[in-house]
Design a binder for these strands. Structure first.
Lengths: 238, 238
DNA sequence: CGCAGCGTTGACAACCTTCAAATTTGGTGG
DNA sequence: CCACCAAATTTGAAGGTTGTCAACGCTGCG
């Protein structure tokens, strides 16, 4: 089975055989974690970087009124918390959505890598910058699109990101979440998330069934969402 | 006059005298740039990191319908584009809002710093992570707060950030932007931005006059906005 | 069977946008 | 100093989008 981290890091850098071996070694001891389980909470001072190898996880913030906003989705190959190396308290929480397999990388390992392996260091940096780009894009989407286009844009993004780690099948990818969680991603109410999903179906753009998204009309979806994958920076270096 | 970059980098690390001299040297040749001027556009492949020494700048994204979302504000001491070192094309634009003084740091300088000075490297990394935290916070704010609380939260954040670089005066700080630009930050219409600002005034929370924000009732503002400055990571290391 | 979680629906209210127009502000030239 | 103009702010009214509340149905599971 392909290693999502190695696939992902192949985009920004040309990994050597040794790099492959190194990354393979780091990712061997994945720990299973049940669905909807907090991996770290706001205020924690975690000592490890967490890497998703299987399943879907997220970062979220809870506001004082109890509402929740999911601020990023972590697919296989995504990691959270390079910032753990730098900062003190976590300013958001991290949780699984589906059942996951998680690797916990001690900060010492990260330290060693950054001191000895420039290619992997570069990939780590790249990954953090891509996360930042996604965040900017979500913010712009939330700020300037209505919920239906925002949802469509999100699905376009996820299809591309799943493809990048070899986990898309045709125009479909796994998204084992409830509509309530979808609402927390979009920053809308559960009721409105439901109606927005119905619009997707009615328009024949995509379906959400059995924890899977299938994009039915990719071309029209891209157009309607004015989706431009540039911000994912997945072009291999020429 | 205090150097905002040195003030800012003093938070995450204990800079040595040599570090001060190094940063001072880097920031001497600031270039004046007029207000509302693009420094870089989406799709560019910039070769420099830009640092704001005076004035206010921003990053923004323009959507296909022409609407604009400002996705971050750059105060003195803030820089844009560490990701320039890593990635190819810029996925957003960068522009001044007010008249600014900008330092352009060649990538070779950044490269040298990261290879030779671990404290400054750490500060650069920290700065990037804080930016990411702010982005997450803006997203959560946009997703889960109504416009009035979102505005209030933004002003609380800016007051703290201006204080951190020694540019706040009491409970006020410069914000030389139009209401249209404010609307692009909040992701609302100009009309609604105006009405939201009026609410601020009517509630006696803050004023926006002559390009300056004054927070009149800081305690109540923090409470109403449920503001927690933790995500700015400005606590000095103990 | 009964329960709990999830998805769906309708009605209504709140929030926000749009459009158009009026008013104020700030800068420029006479 | 004043007239003038452009830009920015403010206002009202109408309509679209989204939230809230409450109810109902479906599904899977003990």
């Amino acid at each position: 089975m392909a290693n999502p981290l190695i696939m992902k890091f192949g985009y920004p850098v040309d990994l050597t055989e040794d790099d492959h071996a190194e990354l393979e070694r780091i990712t061997t001891h994945a720990r299973p974690v049940g669905p909807r389980t907090d991996l770290a909470r706001e205020g924690d001072r975690p000592e490890v970087v967490r890497l998703v190898m299987r399943g879907l996880a997220c970062r979220y913030q809870r506001l004082s009124d109890g509402s929740r906003q999911i601020v990023s989705l972590m697919l296989p190959g995504d990691m959270c918390g390079l910032h753990i190396v730098i900062l003190g308290e976590l300013d958001h929480s991290i949780a699984t959505l589906s059942a996951c397999e998680i690797v916990e990388i001690p900060r010492t390992t990260i330290k060693r890598l950054t001191e000895t392996n420039p290619r992997i260091t570069r990939a780590l940096c790249w990954s953090s910058m891509v996360d930042q780009g996604i965040l900017r894009n979500w913010l712009a989407s939330k700020g300037r699109r209505q919920a239906d286009r925002q949802l469509l844009h999100l699905l376009c993004e996820l299809l591309v990101r799943f493809e990048a780690v070899g986990l898309a099948e045709g125009n479909s990818f796994p998204l084992p979440i409830t509509q309530e969680e979808m609402a927390d991603i979009l920053g809308v109410s559960t009721v409105h998330a439901n109606r927005t999903l119905q619009w997707l179906r009615a328009e024949g753009l995509a379906t959400f069934y059995g924890g899977r998204i299938t994009i039915l009309d990719r071309k029209r979806a891209w157009e309607l969402a004015s989706f431009d994958p540039n911000y994912l920076h997945l072009k291999r270096r020429s």
